[in-house]
């Protein structure tokens, strides 16, 4: 018998360990669910970690009001399937009550507004640990993120003052009012996620698979045509076969021309593609350090 785990099984064992550690060390954790493949993977691993019991914490979705309708539909089915409780934080409501102010102009995005709503929901729910599906291979600011990431009472990240993390000992101690962000799938790459989801036959939103859609081009990125985006006069809508590589707001999530309509074809595409998955994210393109800046303010 061979006593060597393959790399996906080793990653799985590590993530399950982290998820159980969160349940053991924190009083009131919550799992941040965006409807994208990473948070689907994370919540799927959570159902493995606590089987045959239910996942012992709720899922939190910050709804920007600019989501693809397919995302919301998938979210509701998925939550029912894994038997978890769902909490929805609404950016629409936050705008109505004046808690945040909507950006104006052609490149307006609600991405920044999510942070305020997220922090508000964490405070309201008195959550002391928020699980996120961020991966270290996504972006350079995330390459330095810990599994257990301490946030001060303002929800801020201080990259110069992170707790060292050794072996599999995770220090989740905090003062009243502080909380943790925890990233159980830190060590997974985009390819690992797809391979694992294929291997485990996990259900995924249709947006990931190639489909016909009305799109237009802006700054070299294809965006879905929607009422949420103000088009410039020279931006022409055309029909193309596309799919999403990441799922976020319709206003800032680029779609890609693709023929990949099965998970196997997606894996082939991912393995040959030459551009990072966040390459299509308008929110990351604002400046070279936009992720680092947003993380410091409490973005996930």
């Amino acid at each position: 018998m061979n006593y060597q785990l393959n790399h996906l099984k080793e990653l799985e064992a590590e993530s399950i360990f982290i998820l159980r550690e969160v349940a053991a060390q924190f009083e009131n954790p919550v799992l941040m669910f965006s409807g994208g493949k990473d948070s689907i993977l994370m919540s799927y691993l959570a159902s493995k970690a606590f089987f045959p019991a239910n996942v012992p914490f709720p899922l939190l979705h910050v709804d920007t009001g600019h989501n693809f309708p397919e995302t919301i539909e998938f979210r509701d089915n998925w939550v029912e399937k894994i038997g978890a409780k769902l909490i929805v934080g609404s950016v629409d409501k936050a705008i109505e009550t004046g808690m945040v102010i909507e950006e104006k102009g052609v490149n307006a995005s609600r991405n920044g507004l999510q942070t305020a709503v997220l922090l508000d929901e964490l405070e309201k729910g008195k959550f002391d640990a928020a699980l996120g599906g961020a991966r270290r291979d996504e972006e350079k600011a995330r390459a330095k993120e810990r599994f257990f990431s301490h946030r001060d009472e303002f929800g801020q990240w201080d990259p110069k003052n992170q707790r060292p993390e050794l072996w599999n000992l995770f220090n989740g101690k905090k003062h009243f009012g502080e909380h943790f962000r925890v990233f159980p799938i830190s060590n997974w790459t985009e390819m690992d996620v797809w391979m694992y989801l294929a291997m485990e036959n996990v259900e995924l939103p249709n947006l990931y698979f190639a489909h016909e859609r009305d799109v237009f081009e802006r700054d070299g990125i294809l965006l879905a045509d929607t009422d949420y985006i103000q088009k410039k006069p020279d931006e022409i809508v055309m029909k193309k076969k596309v799919r999403c590589r990441t799922i976020g707001d319709m206003t800032c999530t680029g779609v890609w021309e693709s023929e990949a309509d099965t998970i196997e074809k997606i894996i082939t595409e991912v393995s040959t593609t030459r551009v990072t998955e966040r390459g299509g994210r308008a929110d990351d393109k604002r400046s070279e350090t936009s992720m680092e800046d947003r993380k410091m303010k409490g973005y996930f």
Binding site: K140, K144, N187, E288, E292
Partner: peptide, 29 residues
């Protein structure tokens, strides 16, 4: 492998960064 803005300003690496690559035989962290 250039990292955070705060590091580039000081021209040093302040923390452990994790990077990933793979070959058909192994995945490396």
């Amino acid at each position: 492998t250039d990292g955070l803005k705060s590091e580039r300003e000081q021209g040093i690496t302040i923390d452990v960064a994790y990077r990933y690559f793979s070959t058909p035989k192994r995945k490396f962290i």
